[in-house]
Design a binder for these strands. Sequence first.
DNA 1: CCTATGACTGGTC
DNA 2: TGACCAGCCATAG
Length: 107
Amino acid sequence: MQDTPLYERIYAIVRQIPPGKVATYGQIAALVGGCTARMVGYALAALPFDSDVPWQRVINRHGKVSPRSGGAGSALQRQLLQEEGIQFDHEGRVDFAAVGWDGPELV
DNA sequence: CCTATGACTGGTC
DNA sequence: TGACCAGCCATAG
């Protein structure tokens, strides 16, 4: 597992996020261990939109999708999350108490 | 090898 | 979870 690039480790954690749930960059970074939220954001930034990683479920600590570079993409992310059943409030934020990921399950 | 860059976080008011 | 300040560390050229 340590032989795997940090990127793939981050992707592995993101793939573990169940549908209808969202996690923060810090959450992912803590689960990966040895990397910070910026590493997660940068790793996801390098991900293609058609990747097998549900990067859309990764948002910032404010409960909102990141502005991303360029501006577009964040709208797509919100759209994908809504398709998963995640509700956004009038301020474009999600309810951590409702869709907050508790982690890779305690099994 | 060194430099630049980046989808962030945390504590405080 | 509003806003502000400074730090963090891996990846690419």
